[in-house]
Design a protein around this nucleic acid. Structure first.
Lengths: 181, 181
DNA sequence: CTGAAGTTTCAGTATTTTCTGAAAGTTTAA
DNA sequence: TTAAACTTTCAGAAAATACTGAAACTTCAG
């Protein structure tokens, strides 16, 4: 048996949350299992642990690979492929964010930009464009700052957090600094 | 006709993205329509604009209300209810974040905490707990910093962004400051 | 009260998404 | 070159999700 009750509860929870994070239940479970399991696992082991078909595992791995979330290993004298999560927890979170941005935010930004190029044809379109402009700017701001956070090490963030430094404080400081300089 | 071609493209896009942001296609379309439309709309108008049943609109409004994203209006001499988006774009984004955190992150944090209370029963569970701990800390850090960003006005963020201020630079600065002081 | 004008609910249906398992494809040792 | 050991693909089945429309419910003016 690959999972104790506690581990199973975590894996199933990843399944339920999985769809929220951009993949489906099974892919979520697979990912949870790989994270929680010290050794890399073969497709067959995954299929047995989660009670899903071998084909489904293959598709799930492919999906996780498209998110750059798994690594493949080979053992000597063994033809099977073994899978494990790629990178640290922080790196994985970063990748999920990035991929989601590509899939969710980028197309929206591009649609908004296209729409904003045209002249509004009437009152109604003028209002619509104003709103689209607001959304566009907001999305740009959010992706910018998200990128900033991602570029920092989690250790650094944690340390600062524990020092009680809120972003706002830090930024106030910067504000003063800029005005002074 | 309620929508020009350009407006329709935006509304349909919201439908496609909708499911990514936590609701379904129709609810996404409804929300897009309300945002882009200057006047508040009645359920019947929404139903006609989007070609969906009256019942579906009712369910969609209920869903949007559970996210605190719509406002109801009444017009004198008119029994119908009219709907419009609640608050500014920034406030709406903030609400979506908050609600998603409640639905996605909070349950995970609580599961992780529960699991971390128990003593690991073996080597395998020890490893699992270490990973869960990492995830737990990461989620806490992320929610903390997300909250910080949300608490700031978008204007301020934009201004700073345009000044070319990266968080990391700011934080380095603060770091030195702390060491000096 | 009554009934007109509206909203909500929900059983059944339609649509979309996911999963299975068998067939096709790939790789490698001999 | 063969065949065993493995992986991938994909058509069809199953499951999950969303939608419709008619009935039930609510509200309010007269």
């Amino acid at each position: 048996m690959l999972m104790t009750a506690k581990i199973e509860s975590f894996v199933m929870h990843c399944g339920e949350m999985g769809s929220r994070w951009g993949f489906n239940r099974t892919v979520g479970q697979m990912y949870g299992l790989l994270i929680i399991h010290e050794q890399a696992l073969s497709a067959m082991q995954i299929s047995e642990a989660l009670n899903i078909s071998r084909g489904n595992v293959s598709m799930g791995i492919k999906e996780l690979q498209s998110w750059r979330l798994v690594q493949v290993h080979h053992k000597p004298k063994d033809r099977k492929e073994y899978y494990s999560p790629a990178g640290t927890i922080w790196e994985m979170a970063t990748r999920v964010f990035e991929e989601r941005r590509k899939r969710e935010v980028d197309p929206t930004l591009s649609l908004l930009r296209d729409n904003l190029l045209d002249e509004p044809a009437n009152e109604q379109e003028l209002f619509a464009q104003e709103k689209m402009h607001e959304i566009h700017d907001l999305l740009e701001t959010i992706t910018h700052w998200a990128g900033e956070l991602q570029s920092m090490s989690p250790d650094k963030l944690n340390t600062l957090m524990k020092l009680g430094a809120g972003v706002s404080k830090v930024i106030d400081m910067k504000d003063k600094f800029i005005k002074k300089g």
